[in-house]
Nucleic acid binder design. Structure first.
Lengths: 116, 116
DNA sequence: CAGGCATATACTGATATAGGTATATAGCCT
DNA sequence: AGGCTATATACCTATATCAGTATATGCCTG
Protein backbone atom coordinates (compact mmCIF):
# COMPACT_ATOMS: atom_id res chain seq x y z
CA UNK A 1 0.00 0.00 0.00
CA UNK A 2 2.82 2.31 0.97
CA UNK A 3 1.75 5.77 -0.19
CA UNK A 4 -0.14 8.01 2.17
CA UNK A 5 -2.13 9.17 -0.84
CA UNK A 6 -3.33 5.68 -1.64
CA UNK A 7 -4.30 5.17 1.97
CA UNK A 8 -6.57 8.19 2.13
CA UNK A 9 -8.08 7.35 -1.23
CA UNK A 10 -10.41 4.96 0.55
CA UNK A 11 -13.58 6.65 1.85
CA UNK A 12 -13.99 4.40 4.87
CA UNK A 13 -10.48 5.12 5.94
CA UNK A 14 -11.06 8.83 5.65
CA UNK A 15 -14.14 8.38 7.79
CA UNK A 16 -12.14 6.56 10.43
CA UNK A 17 -9.51 9.27 10.46
CA UNK A 18 -12.14 11.97 10.83
CA UNK A 19 -13.67 10.05 13.67
CA UNK A 20 -10.40 9.95 15.50
CA UNK A 21 -10.04 13.70 15.50
CA UNK A 22 -12.20 14.16 18.58
CA UNK A 23 -10.27 11.58 20.56
CA UNK A 24 -8.88 8.10 20.50
CA UNK A 25 -11.39 5.33 19.92
CA UNK A 26 -11.56 1.59 20.30
CA UNK A 27 -12.28 -0.68 17.37
CA UNK A 28 -15.73 -1.38 18.71
CA UNK A 29 -16.56 2.29 18.97
CA UNK A 30 -15.50 2.87 15.40
CA UNK A 31 -17.48 -0.15 14.34
CA UNK A 32 -20.63 1.20 15.95
CA UNK A 33 -20.29 4.81 14.93
CA UNK A 34 -19.53 4.06 11.31
CA UNK A 35 -21.87 1.08 11.09
CA UNK A 36 -19.10 -0.93 9.57
CA UNK A 37 -18.43 -4.64 10.07
CA UNK A 38 -15.70 -5.29 12.60
CA UNK A 39 -13.27 -7.08 10.29
CA UNK A 40 -13.49 -4.20 7.88
CA UNK A 41 -12.60 -1.78 10.64
CA UNK A 42 -9.66 -3.89 11.74
CA UNK A 43 -8.37 -4.20 8.23
CA UNK A 44 -8.57 -0.52 7.52
CA UNK A 45 -6.91 0.25 10.81
CA UNK A 46 -4.13 -2.10 9.86
CA UNK A 47 -3.52 -0.19 6.68
CA UNK A 48 -3.71 3.11 8.51
CA UNK A 49 -1.24 1.95 11.09
CA UNK A 50 1.22 0.58 8.56
CA UNK A 51 1.16 3.95 6.86
CA UNK A 52 1.69 5.76 10.14
CA UNK A 53 -1.66 7.53 10.26
CA UNK A 54 -2.60 5.96 13.58
CA UNK A 55 -1.03 4.23 16.51
CA UNK A 56 -2.64 2.03 19.09
CA UNK A 57 -2.24 1.17 22.70
CA UNK A 58 -3.66 -1.81 24.50
CA UNK A 59 -6.39 -1.40 27.05
CA UNK A 60 -7.32 -4.86 28.28
CA UNK A 61 -8.95 -6.65 25.38
CA UNK A 62 -9.35 -3.52 23.40
CA UNK A 63 -7.06 -1.40 21.36
CA UNK A 64 -7.30 2.34 21.45
CA UNK A 65 -6.38 4.04 18.22
CA UNK A 66 -5.32 7.62 17.84
CA UNK A 67 -3.95 9.84 15.12
CA UNK A 68 -0.34 10.44 14.30
CA UNK A 69 0.78 13.53 12.41
CA UNK A 70 3.50 12.51 10.00
CA UNK A 71 1.59 11.24 6.98
CA UNK A 72 -0.72 14.22 7.11
CA UNK A 73 2.28 16.46 6.97
CA UNK A 74 3.52 14.59 3.96
CA UNK A 75 0.28 15.06 2.07
CA UNK A 76 0.12 18.66 3.12
CA UNK A 77 3.63 19.24 1.89
CA UNK A 78 2.81 17.88 -1.54
CA UNK A 79 -0.32 19.93 -1.68
CA UNK A 80 1.72 22.94 -0.75
CA UNK A 81 3.27 23.10 -4.19
CA UNK A 82 -0.13 23.93 -5.56
CA UNK A 83 -1.23 26.49 -3.02
CA UNK A 84 -0.21 29.34 -5.25
CA UNK A 85 -2.55 28.01 -7.86
CA UNK A 86 -5.67 28.30 -5.83
CA UNK A 87 -4.88 30.58 -2.93
CA UNK A 88 -6.17 33.60 -4.79
CA UNK A 89 -8.76 33.70 -7.51
CA UNK A 90 -5.82 34.14 -9.73
CA UNK A 91 -7.40 32.04 -12.38
CA UNK A 92 -7.20 34.92 -14.77
CA UNK A 93 -3.71 35.85 -13.73
CA UNK A 94 -2.60 32.26 -13.89
CA UNK A 95 -3.82 31.98 -17.39
CA UNK A 96 -2.02 35.14 -18.25
CA UNK A 97 1.24 33.83 -16.83
CA UNK A 98 0.79 30.58 -18.69
CA UNK A 99 0.52 32.51 -21.87
CA UNK A 100 3.64 34.44 -21.12
CA UNK A 101 5.50 31.34 -20.12
CA UNK A 102 4.43 28.41 -22.28
CA UNK A 103 7.04 25.75 -21.85
CA UNK A 104 8.20 25.51 -25.41
CA UNK A 105 6.37 28.29 -27.19
CA UNK A 106 3.33 26.65 -28.78
CA UNK A 107 5.38 26.32 -31.92
CA UNK A 108 7.30 27.98 -34.65
CA UNK A 109 4.52 29.17 -36.83
CA UNK A 110 3.79 31.25 -39.79
CA UNK A 111 0.80 33.27 -38.83
CA UNK A 112 0.03 33.61 -35.14
CA UNK A 113 -2.77 31.10 -35.02
CA UNK A 114 -4.34 30.84 -31.65
CA UNK A 115 -7.31 28.59 -31.69
CA UNK A 116 -9.46 29.30 -28.63
CA UNK B 1 -13.08 7.39 -10.43
CA UNK B 2 -14.94 10.30 -8.93
CA UNK B 3 -13.01 11.19 -5.76
CA UNK B 4 -10.19 13.70 -5.94
CA UNK B 5 -8.38 11.57 -3.39
CA UNK B 6 -8.47 8.52 -5.60
CA UNK B 7 -7.20 10.56 -8.50
CA UNK B 8 -4.09 11.77 -6.71
CA UNK B 9 -3.44 8.32 -5.32
CA UNK B 10 -1.71 7.47 -8.59
CA UNK B 11 1.97 8.46 -8.66
CA UNK B 12 2.10 9.19 -12.38
CA UNK B 13 -0.85 11.51 -12.05
CA UNK B 14 0.81 13.35 -9.21
CA UNK B 15 3.88 13.68 -11.39
CA UNK B 16 1.82 15.16 -14.19
CA UNK B 17 0.21 17.64 -11.84
CA UNK B 18 3.57 18.70 -10.47
CA UNK B 19 4.83 19.16 -13.97
CA UNK B 20 1.98 21.47 -14.79
CA UNK B 21 2.84 23.83 -11.97
CA UNK B 22 5.46 25.68 -13.97
CA UNK B 23 3.17 26.21 -16.91
CA UNK B 24 0.75 24.53 -19.25
CA UNK B 25 2.13 21.66 -21.27
CA UNK B 26 1.17 19.66 -24.30
CA UNK B 27 0.69 15.91 -24.15
CA UNK B 28 3.90 15.39 -26.03
CA UNK B 29 5.88 17.50 -23.62
CA UNK B 30 4.56 15.55 -20.69
CA UNK B 31 5.31 12.35 -22.51
CA UNK B 32 8.91 13.36 -23.03
CA UNK B 33 9.57 14.86 -19.64
CA UNK B 34 8.11 11.99 -17.70
CA UNK B 35 9.34 9.30 -20.07
CA UNK B 36 5.89 7.86 -20.17
CA UNK B 37 4.17 6.24 -23.15
CA UNK B 38 1.77 8.56 -24.87
CA UNK B 39 -1.39 6.53 -24.32
CA UNK B 40 -0.63 6.43 -20.63
CA UNK B 41 -0.33 10.19 -20.55
CA UNK B 42 -3.57 10.65 -22.40
CA UNK B 43 -5.39 8.26 -20.13
CA UNK B 44 -4.17 9.91 -16.98
CA UNK B 45 -5.00 13.30 -18.36
CA UNK B 46 -8.49 12.06 -19.06
CA UNK B 47 -8.90 11.05 -15.45
CA UNK B 48 -7.44 14.33 -14.26
CA UNK B 49 -9.74 16.31 -16.47
CA UNK B 50 -12.84 14.39 -15.45
CA UNK B 51 -11.97 15.13 -11.85
CA UNK B 52 -11.43 18.80 -12.61
CA UNK B 53 -7.72 18.89 -11.86
CA UNK B 54 -6.85 20.10 -15.33
CA UNK B 55 -8.42 21.74 -18.32
CA UNK B 56 -7.25 21.82 -21.88
CA UNK B 57 -7.35 24.10 -24.85
CA UNK B 58 -6.69 23.22 -28.43
CA UNK B 59 -3.60 24.45 -30.21
CA UNK B 60 -3.63 23.04 -33.71
CA UNK B 61 -3.16 19.30 -33.37
CA UNK B 62 -2.07 19.56 -29.82
CA UNK B 63 -3.84 20.03 -26.56
CA UNK B 64 -2.42 22.26 -23.89
CA UNK B 65 -3.23 21.20 -20.38
CA UNK B 66 -3.15 23.39 -17.33
CA UNK B 67 -4.14 23.15 -13.70
CA UNK B 68 -7.46 24.03 -12.20
CA UNK B 69 -7.80 24.86 -8.52
CA UNK B 70 -11.04 23.32 -7.27
CA UNK B 71 -10.08 19.73 -6.49
CA UNK B 72 -6.96 20.89 -4.71
CA UNK B 73 -9.10 23.06 -2.54
CA UNK B 74 -11.28 20.11 -1.73
CA UNK B 75 -8.37 17.98 -0.62
CA UNK B 76 -6.94 20.86 1.33
CA UNK B 77 -10.24 21.41 3.08
CA UNK B 78 -10.38 17.82 4.23
CA UNK B 79 -6.83 17.97 5.36
CA UNK B 80 -7.67 21.09 7.28
CA UNK B 81 -9.55 19.14 9.89
CA UNK B 82 -6.29 17.55 10.91
CA UNK B 83 -4.09 20.61 10.97
CA UNK B 84 -4.47 21.02 14.68
CA UNK B 85 -3.07 17.54 15.08
CA UNK B 86 0.24 18.22 13.51
CA UNK B 87 0.67 21.97 13.37
CA UNK B 88 2.60 22.04 16.61
CA UNK B 89 4.64 19.31 18.18
CA UNK B 90 1.69 18.91 20.38
CA UNK B 91 2.13 15.20 20.38
CA UNK B 92 2.49 15.22 24.10
CA UNK B 93 -0.36 17.63 24.57
CA UNK B 94 -2.51 15.65 22.18
CA UNK B 95 -1.93 12.55 24.15
CA UNK B 96 -2.78 14.39 27.31
CA UNK B 97 -6.05 15.61 25.85
CA UNK B 98 -6.91 12.15 24.66
CA UNK B 99 -6.47 10.91 28.13
CA UNK B 100 -8.72 13.57 29.53
CA UNK B 101 -11.29 12.99 26.85
CA UNK B 102 -11.47 9.31 25.99
CA UNK B 103 -14.68 8.89 24.11
CA UNK B 104 -16.36 6.51 26.48
CA UNK B 105 -13.95 6.34 29.38
CA UNK B 106 -11.83 3.27 28.74
CA UNK B 107 -14.26 1.43 30.94
CA UNK B 108 -15.87 1.09 34.29
CA UNK B 109 -13.18 -0.69 36.14
CA UNK B 110 -12.24 -1.93 39.48
CA UNK B 111 -8.65 -0.99 39.88
CA UNK B 112 -7.26 1.65 37.53
CA UNK B 113 -5.52 -0.72 35.17
CA UNK B 114 -3.68 1.08 32.49
CA UNK B 115 -1.68 -1.26 30.44
CA UNK B 116 0.97 0.71 28.62
C1' DC C 1 -11.57 -22.76 34.19
C1' DA C 2 -15.38 -21.89 31.24
C1' DG C 3 -17.69 -18.69 28.70
C1' DG C 4 -17.81 -14.42 26.53
C1' DC C 5 -16.16 -10.19 24.65
C1' DA C 6 -12.85 -7.55 21.69
C1' DT C 7 -9.90 -7.70 17.99
C1' DA C 8 -7.12 -9.70 14.36
C1' DT C 9 -6.32 -12.66 10.54
C1' DA C 10 -7.19 -16.08 6.71
C1' DC C 11 -9.60 -17.08 2.80
C1' DT C 12 -12.61 -16.26 -1.17
C1' DG C 13 -14.80 -13.93 -4.83
C1' DA C 14 -15.93 -9.70 -7.31
C1' DT C 15 -14.42 -5.40 -9.27
C1' DA C 16 -11.52 -1.80 -10.59
C1' DT C 17 -7.51 -0.02 -12.52
C1' DA C 18 -2.97 0.46 -14.63
C1' DG C 19 0.00 -0.93 -18.32
C1' DG C 20 0.72 -2.34 -23.06
C1' DT C 21 -0.26 -2.60 -27.90
C1' DA C 22 -2.79 -1.45 -31.73
C1' DT C 23 -5.65 1.61 -34.03
C1' DA C 24 -8.66 5.60 -34.85
C1' DT C 25 -9.26 10.62 -35.44
C1' DA C 26 -7.99 15.00 -36.78
C1' DG C 27 -5.24 18.85 -38.11
C1' DC C 28 -1.08 20.49 -40.58
C1' DC C 29 2.02 21.00 -44.59
C1' DT C 30 3.75 20.37 -49.15
C1' DA D 1 -4.69 14.71 -51.93
C1' DG D 2 -1.29 12.28 -49.18
C1' DG D 3 1.70 11.84 -45.57
C1' DC D 4 3.09 13.25 -41.13
C1' DT D 5 2.32 14.70 -36.37
C1' DA D 6 -0.37 14.86 -32.15
C1' DT D 7 -3.65 12.89 -29.35
C1' DA D 8 -7.38 9.84 -28.05
C1' DT D 9 -9.55 5.49 -27.59
C1' DA D 10 -10.36 0.32 -27.70
C1' DC D 11 -9.04 -3.89 -26.19
C1' DC D 12 -6.62 -7.21 -23.37
C1' DT D 13 -4.21 -8.86 -19.41
C1' DA D 14 -2.28 -8.71 -14.87
C1' DT D 15 -2.67 -7.15 -10.39
C1' DA D 16 -4.52 -5.01 -6.45
C1' DT D 17 -8.09 -4.21 -3.27
C1' DC D 18 -12.53 -4.27 -1.03
C1' DA D 19 -16.32 -6.73 0.96
C1' DG D 20 -17.88 -10.74 3.24
C1' DT D 21 -17.59 -14.83 6.01
C1' DA D 22 -15.40 -17.76 9.03
C1' DT D 23 -12.12 -18.56 12.42
C1' DA D 24 -8.21 -17.70 15.57
C1' DT D 25 -6.19 -15.26 19.60
C1' DG D 26 -6.18 -13.19 23.89
C1' DC D 27 -7.93 -11.26 28.05
C1' DC D 28 -11.41 -10.76 31.49
C1' DT D 29 -15.07 -12.25 34.71
C1' DG D 30 -17.94 -15.15 37.29
Amino acid sequence: MESAFAVIAEPNRRAILSLLISSQQSVGEIERRLRMPQPAVSKHLRVLRDAGFVESTVDAQRRLYRLRPEPFREVDAWLGQFRRIWSAHLDALERHLDRLHPSPPPRKTRKPRRKR
